[in-house]
Design a protein around this nucleic acid. Sequence first.
RNA 1: UGCCUGAUAGUAUAAGGGUAGUACGUCAGAUUUUGGUUCUGAAUGUCUUGGUUCGAAUCCAGGUCGGGCAACCA
Length: 553
Amino acid sequence: MAEEKSLNFLEEIIENDLKSGRYRSIVTRFPPEPNGYLHMGHATSICLNFGLTKKYGGYTNLRFDDTNPTTEETEFVQSIKDDVRWLGFEWKNELYASDYFEELYLFAIKLIRKGCAYVDDSDSETIAAEKGTPTQAGVNSKFRDRSVEENLQLFEDMKAGKFKDGERVLRAKIDMAHPNMLMRDPLMYRIKHAHHHRTGDKWCIYPMYDFAHGQSDSIEHITHSICTLEFVPHRELYDWFIEQLDIFPSHQYEFARRNLSYTVMSKRKLLQLVNEKHVEGWDDPRMPTISAFRRRGYTAAAIRDFCDRVGIAKRENVADLSLLEFCVREDLNKIALRRMVVFDPLKIVLTNYTNENELVSVEDNPEDTNGGFRDVPFSKELYIEQEDFIENPPKKFFRLFPGGMVRLKGAYIIKCDEVIKDDTGKIIQLNCSYIPESKSGNDTSNIKVKGTLHWVSVEHAVTAEVRLYDRLFKAEDPSNEEGNFKDYINEDSLQIISTVYGEPALKNAVAEERYQFLRKGYFTLDKDSSEEKMIFNRTVTLKDTWAREVKKV
RNA sequence: UGCCUGAUAGUAUAAGGGUAGUACGUCAGAUUUUGGUUCUGAAUGUCUUGGUUCGAAUCCAGGUCGGGCAACCA
């Protein structure tokens, strides 16, 4: 009997709502602002919102929170849709806060009529000053007590474009002494003579987040409006507008934003990394954006699994990058095709080898019992990794050394007989002998070796470029370190090896397919690849217990 | 000297008055034609002080520490 997975606090709320009959099914929404690319934090929100309706019945809308025309662009709308789809979720309706501009405008008029809103002529400095501070009450604006008629007229003039940016705002009339600063006559509308990515030049007044989000939720009958912790103080305002307007009572629930170790997650900081060219773009594989993870070779399943395993709660957190890496390795181990690729070649010559055109058969994926095999050409001259040979090996080193034996994966056991160096003492070639009766699958040699190496035939090798990525930051939580987060950028986060040597099957690599370069890590073809040149991104390394062993010394 | 909010192994998350559990990470071992995978085992935790109770991570009171709130951003 499988243990029942415990519920997170939102699932509990929903189950109670369903049980009590408050709702028969639920509606959630994912509400990104189209002013940047989605990142891992959004992935958590996406998995949460879509996951909840999948689990409990109902649906999820995709709603773009596009109330600020000066920062928002269609480019981002497209990338967001791509990312949500790629993550494996389908929204019920594609919506925009701008779809509701007319309705929102009517809501504003309703509040003016009720005496709950007024037009303020003060400039932003004055309004800010009059707002007071967290420990000090604000004071009323001198425009606070205008008549309903005057307010109506002024608001219409605002809409009609009779004022310049910043000359007037519409504010809710609540309480300038309220302990919650958001309740001190918050702005509802501001004037922006700006082109909107969807409504064009139709409007020159735009609703503020607080006057758009809750009402949009309400219009869509969102039952559970889930957002991050920084909006907790907004909930009071959210409820106030809904109550004053007497519209469908959506409810807001807050959870803690998801952070990831060794990176930053705020859009502002990510934008800086892009603009200041610390990375190549939003989908630079070192970025924590969804498009970057995709390009790097992460699978949607792995990301979903990660979000699932981390869970959600209400306390601030920094999730371990190693958990994400575990999730992607676990998925990739099952699906990646194995290939042999030598990064840093050391030539070996099998002095006693005389066969011609020999092929050895190697499994594509040992985890897959139905998996296929491929033929790999074997020959007298092979490449192995430089690091797989040490002249004076440390203890527990079971790769190749003078007089030592190793198996070449899928082929024969070889013995190192002679080390050849150039004038500078650099090792340039190994002369080895192979054990003919040790062929894989047909081994009658009775020789036991500890090490198995990957290799490629010199004559048959195909070349490619590999890009090896490391964490973008040296600090676990760069935002919380002393000084600027950029001081902690890892200068070695990208290592390019322009020529590596792969077995011929590598030539058939296709986009989207995942590969495990034996003993090297998981790789996928990068979009920069061309007919002439294959470029592979390292998605993640293999777990390397030997590297850890070496480090200990 | 305001308001809101949070605190469980290194990290993340359970336990909702009754054995503090799970995952990742760490360490040790077994298996292995990838030093991968798989398997086994171990170490490590309830912010603090009181109170209620047969019994408290859980309820109550005080304290400590962290986060958010003074954008015509979302």
